[in-house]
Write a protein that binds this DNA or RNA. Structure first.
Length: 411
DNA sequence: TGTCCACTGGAACGTACGGCTT
DNA sequence: AAGCCGTACGTTCCAGTGGACA
């Protein structure tokens, strides 16, 4: 506090203190290493399906599915990377396009993005979707090549925009005479095939590859390999750190992404503390910090209306009871809007906002029937009251509401 | 056993906006 | 400039619903 230049000491420690890390990028889950342990079978499967492209034919479309963090994306990218090298060596024309349908989630965007990846910029709005489709066909026809299009989290696209684009993409080869296109659809949702049109499903899943969750032992092995590349020798409390990261992630359905994140953050926590090694205490701190950061970030970036709905749930919990129903939330939310002098949304819209809050895990909303007293949703906060108040009240508009007390207390 | 509540949630539609083609 | 397009965000309308209660 009395130190006039507190940051100096921090910068000093980071620039000259002992670094625990040899190669930071290796610790990120998005890094695709030279070998993917425990996924040899899937690599071989996908590799041999796609390799038919080397002989000039069109590889079958592949449908890849498994739970999050089971290596689907990493394996697919790995195989494509190797395949690109092979095509390059043989001087055969080949391109791969990877897109994640979490961000690219409408028909238009998917087509526009594929065009962009193939070298033709398409405006992000303004054109009819059919026009973008025609441009894509033209673009593919103008270059005699094999294109592999990876649609990661394809279930998101179908959920939001239907399976029209997927249908058209699976049929695209009928419109092409020069070029060939193969699709790889990746889904986290194991029930995805159930809500897909059977025609689309059968052409998308000419081949299927399933990824099972990693076991704790496999996760340990993965972490050990990464740490030997990414960390300096002898800085881990063995075997505690790796075993704990693996065990925690295995509990979360064998999610390697979580294991790697937890491991990386543990090292970063140790580094921040200026520690010479990484201990299980650092893992525990990392776990809490990841959980907290995720929630804080989500809370902080909510739009105002959603913050107000959530704040209404918080206020009801604080002054009335911890599990209010839609009507009560709507009333308090309406009051809060009045206080702020802004228009309130309709109940229909608020009901959707509550569902959205439920989907991102900030509240738990359960539809219940109260018999003669109607059907409604019971809503409870899924995160601590303290955290909600703390973050939301940082918003200057909501801060002015902190003295608000709901009417008709104790109904 | 039928009624009726307090909603839910699907569908259609409206508005605003950025951006295209002609 | 006019007309059209995709997208985001919202409203309006309304059929449907689970189950307590008379």
């Amino acid at each position: 506090m009395d130190d006039p230049r507190p940051l100096d000491r921090i910068f000093e420690r980071f620039s000259t203190g002992p670094s625990l890390i040899r190669d930071r990028k290796v610790l990120w889950h998005s890094y695709v290493p030279d070998e993917l342990p425990h996924r040899e079978e899937q690599i071989t499967q996908i590799g041999s399906i796609l390799a038919t492209g080397l002989k000039g034919s069109r590889p079958s479309n592949v449908f890849v599915y498994g739970k999050p963090g089971t290596g689907k994306t990493a394996v697919t990218r790995y195989v494509l990377r190797e395949l690109t090298t092979k095509f390059g060596e043989l001087q055969l024309p080949f391109k791969s396009v990877y897109l994640n349908c979490r961000n690219v989630d409408t028909d238009y965007r998917v087509l526009a993005r594929i065009c962009a990846e193939l070298g033709q910029k398409v405006p992000f709005t303004g054109l009819p979707t059919d026009e973008v489709h025609s441009r894509l066909i033209e673009l593919l026809e103008s270059q005699d090549l094999l294109t592999i299009i990876v649609l990661d989290e394809v279930d998101r696209l179908v959920l939001k925009s239907g399976d029209d684009t997927l249908y058209k993409l699976t049929r695209i080869n009928y419109e092409l005479s020069n070029s060939r296109v193969s699709l790889i659809g990746i889904s986290n949702d194991l029930r995805f095939p159930e809500y897909l049109d059977p025609r689309v499903l059968s052409s998308l899943s000419e081949e299927k590859v399933i990824f099972h969750p990693y076991t704790a032992l496999q996760l340990q092995d993965i972490l050990r390999r990464r740490s030997s590349h990414g960390l300096k020798d002898g800085i881990l409390e063995e075997p505690g750190v790796i075993n704990l990261c693996a065990a925690l992630a295995a509990r979360e359905e064998g999610d390697a992404r979580r294991a790697l994140d937890l491991f990386r953050v543990s090292v970063e926590v140790a580094e921040r503390e200026g520690s010479k090694d990484v201990s299980v205490d650092h893992v525990e701190k990392a776990r809490l910090s990841i959980e907290r950061d995720t929630v804080l970030e989500v809370l902080r970036t909510l739009p105002l209306q959603q913050k107000l709905v959530l704040y209404a749930v918080y206020i009801l919990g604080r002054y009335k009871h911890p599990h209010p129903v839609t009507g009560e939330v709507q009333d308090v939310y309406g009051d809060l809007c009045n206080e702020l002098g802004i228009d309130s949304l309709t109940q229909r819209r608020v009901s959707d906002l509550i569902n959205d809050l439920d989907a991102i895990g900030l509240v738990n909303a359960k539809v219940v029937s109260k018999g003669r007293y109607g059907r409604t949703k019971i809503i409870r906060l899924s995160v601590s009251n303290k955290m909600v108040a703390e973050v939301l009240e940082r918003d200057s508009r909501i801060k002015t509401l902190s003295s608000y007390i709901p009417k008709n207390l104790g109904k």
